[in-house]
Design a protein around this nucleic acid. Structure first.
Lengths: 129, 129
DNA sequence: ATAATGTGTAACTATACGGTTTCGCATTTA
DNA sequence: TAAATGCGAAACCGTATAGTTACACATTAT
């Protein structure tokens, strides 16, 4: 097993999703496999540019390639998106839960911070002396 | 209303999430507000580096800043993550649904592609003549 | 066999990005 | 008022990235 696979944590997926063209490529592939040429046809950039995006998506394991004659057919592999999804999972409560109570929570943290920062400052001051 | 707000579509959020440090900053803020200094303290990079990350996160509306004396308190704003979540939503079926049927679907698309590509090639060939 | 087609790679350019150090400004403390 | 503190901005550097054009290679068509 290669190290990149073993230590996979979704970082590559996050990086891959940063580019709007690559997100659009994935959106295209949601409907089914497409050849590299067909994908390139859907964008205003040159074919080699798409080729590079596809290489990045391949390395992030977000797409899979299969050769058919001289065509390279690309299909979606949603697995790495699971990592993105599970990262997002930890934030879902922030907008699905009661917003008022969240606000209260943040406010109280804000107050804690105020006194904590003061205490920390004093502690550092003592240390320095 | 500024244009950036009006045309907001989550692109900035995706770009912001590409960096592991920024994701970690958001993870920190999940527990409550923190000052810029406290955030910087949690990372092995310089404070200005964190300052730049925070600016990017602010521009992506993923964090909010509030001044308290000479402290700048940062808190999480999960709203832009909704856009990320809803983008991901369209992919969720790909791993929650029956994988066998998905496979069949992809296979059939693959077959369609094979003949479609052939037809398209011929069409283009005719056009060129 | 030769030509045409599909696609990836190479080489190059411009720009964005993450990092650093230095500086400046506002606020708080002494 | 003067010193210390918190933090962002500026200037700079090295590298990554998105794009281009030119090329190479394999496969299909003639």
């Amino acid at each position: 097993m290669r190290n990149r696979l073993a230590t996979y944590n979704g970082a590559a997926a996050f990086a891959a999703l940063a580019d709007p063209t690559r997100r659009a490529v994935l959106d295209l592939l949601r409907a089914g496999s497409l050849s590299a040429g067909q994908i390139a046809h859907a964008f205003p950039v040159s074919r080699p540019a798409i080729s590079k995006h596809l290489r990045l998506l391949r390395r992030a394991r977000l797409v899979e390639q299969r050769r058919l004659g001289r065509l390279r057919l690309y299909s979606l592999n949603p697995d790495p998106l699971k990592a993105v999804d599970s990262w997002l999972e930890r934030y879902r409560s922030f907008w699905s839960a009661n917003l008022a109570s969240l606000k209260r929570f943040v406010e109280s943290e804000y107050q804690n911070e105020k006194t904590a920062a003061r205490a920390r400052r004093k502690a550092r001051a003592r240390k320095r002396i």
